[in-house]
Computed example of a mutant assay.
Amino acid sequence: MAEYRAHFDALVQFLNGGNLRTAGFRLDLPAGDLSSDEIARLFVRHLGLALVSEVELSNLEVVEEPHRGSRGVATRPSADPAARGRLVDLSHTITEGLVTYPGLPAPVITPHLTREASAANYAPGTRFAIDALTLVGNTGTYLDSPYHRYADGTDLAGLSLETLVDLPTEVFHVSDAAGRGLPAPVFYDRDLAGRAVLIHTGWDRHFGTPAYADQAPFLTEAGVRYLIDQGVVLVGIDSLNIDDTGPEAHGTRPAHSLLLAAGIHVVEHLTGLGSLPPSGARFTAVPPKIRAFGTFPVRAFALI
């Protein structure tokens, strides 16, 4: 396999004054078709330079030549997102008029500043749109914080990113379950401490239709207590609600009450969980940092 080196002179200017000049510098390259800008970045990284404002290369020549061990130059940075794994979007798209939970108002989008009106404020050809969005926190795919259930619970602004980002994840595929309520033994087969637990019921196939609110799967109180005892950090489901919302439940909400009291986040109305493996994915769901607010839409996704 061919190896390449760059020969060049360089002038480096620094933000806080001063400069650095080199003549006849040699730098190993990860490939032979790098641009001068890419070579300049490798040069700065190789020398560990900070506060650089400008790099000018001259007399640049790329030659096929064995590497000599330039620091930090091993392989060319990949532009392929697949190199870091596959991202799976687990969120429903929010649109004007979307019905997430029957009885709650749908989102409304109204223009605050139209592109046409903005033209008077900017240079020719420069336009912007600023829109206002009115929605309840329980819209689309959203996260519940303890404040959603408890007045003294942690609100959205108080949530730790460590409990929301890049969480090791266990996915339970139960779309063929015979009953609606998911019991504790479903979760017995794995170590769940410090993990996000995502429950794939397949009910997201009904999202946006009347069937979504009828006989939806949920997590039983025994299942909730087991997950809390196991030390999970987040529980998500692709159903109407993590609790039973049918009339036979008489308005009780043990899943919300127990999980949020334990500081365990709840994410509802997920979608696409069937694309995730049982173990090994990393889950992220981050809401805005809003004080005195309990629940809000998230862009939930997993890295496989």
Rank of each mutant, 00 (worst) to 15 (best):
S53R: 01
N138R: 15
T110Q: 11
L90I: 06
V63E: 00
V73Y: 06
D89M: 12
A50Y: 11
A74Y: 15
E96R: 14
Y122T: 03
A50Q: 13
D28I: 01
G69Y: 06
A31M: 05
N121D: 15
P81C: 08
G72Q: 10
R149Y: 12
P77T: 10
S145T: 11
G137D: 00
A83L: 12
F43P: 01
G24S: 10
G24M: 06
G32P: 02
P81T: 14
V73A: 04
A151I: 11
L49Q: 11
V73K: 04
A31S: 04
N121R: 12
S78V: 14
P124D: 06
Y122C: 01
D89Y: 14
R84A: 15
T95I: 09
A119H: 11
T114G: 05
L60K: 03
A117M: 01
E54W: 03
T75K: 08
L49Y: 09
G69T: 03
Y150D: 07
F128Q: 14
Y150L: 10
A129I: 07
F25P: 05
T134F: 15
Y122F: 14
L90C: 07
P30W: 00
T126M: 14
R86M: 13
R86L: 13
Y101V: 15
N59Y: 12
L113Y: 02
V55R: 04
R76C: 03
E96D: 08
A119V: 07
G140C: 09
A106P: 08
G137Y: 08
G32L: 05
S145R: 09
A120R: 05
N59H: 14
L133Q: 09
E96S: 13
P102A: 07
G97Q: 14
D89G: 12
E96Q: 12
V108C: 05
R41L: 01
E96W: 11
D144H: 15
I39L: 00
D37H: 00
E64W: 04
P111N: 02
L47T: 13
G32C: 08
V63W: 02
S145D: 07
A40W: 00
L133F: 14
L27K: 05
R26M: 05
P30L: 08
E38N: 05
F25M: 12
R84D: 13
L34F: 02
G32I: 03
T114D: 07
H46C: 11
H112Y: 15
F25V: 09
V136Q: 04
L34I: 15
G103K: 01
R115I: 04
G72V: 02
R86G: 11
V73H: 06
Y122W: 06
I130S: 14
T141I: 08
V62L: 13
P107M: 00
P66D: 14
P77K: 00
P111V: 04
V62M: 13
F43Q: 06
E56D: 12
D28Q: 01
T134D: 11
L60R: 01
I109A: 03
G24A: 08
H92D: 06
T75H: 10
S53H: 02
L104F: 14
L113V: 05
L42V: 01
G97F: 13
P107N: 02
V63M: 05
R68A: 13
E116A: 13
T134P: 08
H148C: 12
P81K: 09
E54K: 10
L133I: 15
S145E: 02
D37N: 02
L29T: 02
G72P: 00
T75I: 13
G97W: 14
T134E: 11
G103V: 11
V88E: 03
L34H: 03
A79Y: 03
